[in-house]
Amino acid sequence: MSRVEHQPGWVVHRRPWRETSLLVEFFAREHGRIGLVAKGARSARSPWRGLAEPFVPLSASWSRRGEMGTLTGLEPAGDRHALAGRALWCGLYVNELLLRLLERDDPHPTVFDACEAVFRGLAGGDEPQSMLLRRFELALLSGMGVAPDFDFDAAGGDAIRPDGLYHLQPEVGFVPVERGGAGVFRGAAIRALAAGSTDQRETAREMRELMRTLIDHHLAGRELATRRLLAGAKGKSTGGSDS
């Protein structure tokens, strides 16, 4: 049996379990994604009631024997990131990526920090949601160790030129090509992504396409429900938030 005390982390997702408990997918900075049972967390008198929610910086303690741990302590470690409207959907998209792409028990402190940044940015509303998501996606893939080299091409190892065209091969990298086509991106978009630049209206669509190609490759056929939500909602969108 192992015990862990006061670990910073996020609730990625939670589901009701039995009468009053929750099954929590917790993403801890030093422990990665773990499954925890929060006994009695839904009962009226529980101090954890309403606390085991996404987007709240938390400090958790748990004990564990086998696959699932048992939550023994939970406290807020900061203020809830107040995500509203489409920003909330974007936050759920981030959580769905964590759930689908990260293995359990695989620590990813840099991804954890990127979560903090993307939630803060989405709550603040100062930067376009699309840019915040692109930056998170890149941090996620880099943290997993599967991001291609955004600085040098995969053929001769030359620096990526803004005016060049490159074919993205997820397991290989960016291969210079002569002509555009499916899976071909401009060097300018690749460079902008690597730099995390925030004001790139003309390459925004291309950057989204590029990250999507990479993420889809690692999802291996699984679909993202939040992506469908962001793409398919009716009415006038506030723009630029799509994943």
Binding site: E53, P54, F55, A84, G85, R86, L88, W89, L92, L229, A233, K234, G235, K236, S237
Partner: peptide
């Protein structure tokens, strides 16, 4: 006022605004 309730509210809002 859960995360899911708020996500639903946003969807309803967009449905209404488009009309």
């Amino acid at each position: 006022t859960t995360v899911e309730g708020e996500a639903t509210a946003q969807y309803l809002r967009e449905m209404a605004e488009s009309r």
